[in-house]
């Protein structure tokens, strides 16, 4: 059942993005930035956690989960260390995505050459 939920959730997020892309003049860069902000916003009231419970990996794949994980990691440290935790814990949960993207693209760009 969680697979169906994952399909529906990730599909709907992508559909919304595609509708914005087709009907406005915004570029994909605008849309991904917007979705990250929306993901962070939904986490103010823990709404995105409900999505993750409901759709599992389907809610973690779209870029909205990036914003959710940023604020989630920050709030975890805030609960332990006070407001300075916003600075220290921001990347706690997202570092896997950022670091892996940096490492893989750096190493692979040394091996591969651009194809036209």
């Amino acid at each position: 059942m969680i697979y169906l939920n994952a399909f529906l959730f990730a599909g709907t997020v992508c559909l919304i993005g595609q509708m914005i892309l087709d009907n406005t003049k915004l570029t994909p860069g605008h849309i991904t930035s917007m979705f990250v902000v929306v993901g962070a916003f939904l986490d103010i009231f823990d709404i995105y956690d409900q999505f993750v419970l409901w759709a599992g990996g389907g809610a973690l794949v779209p870029i909205t989960s990036f914003g959710h994980l940023l604020i989630h990691g920050a709030m975890d440290t805030v609960n332990n260390f006070g407001v300075m935790g916003l600075f220290t814990g921001m990347f706690d949960l997202t570092s896997s995505g950022i670091v892996s993207a940096i490492i893989f693209s750096f190493l692979l760009s040394l091996v591969f050459h651009p194809k036209d």
Binding site: Y3, F7, A10, G11, C14, L15, M19, G57, G58
Partner: peptide
């Protein structure tokens, strides 16, 4: 002419499959 309906449908299907792939990998 870009068919918005087809574009949306493809985005929905591919995005949904990515979500299923994500959940499959997690499990």
């Amino acid at each position: 002419k870009e068919n918005r309906l087809t574009n949306g449908l493809i985005a929905f299907l591919v995005g949904g499959l990515m979500g299923v792939l994500g959940q499959t990998l997690v499990s």
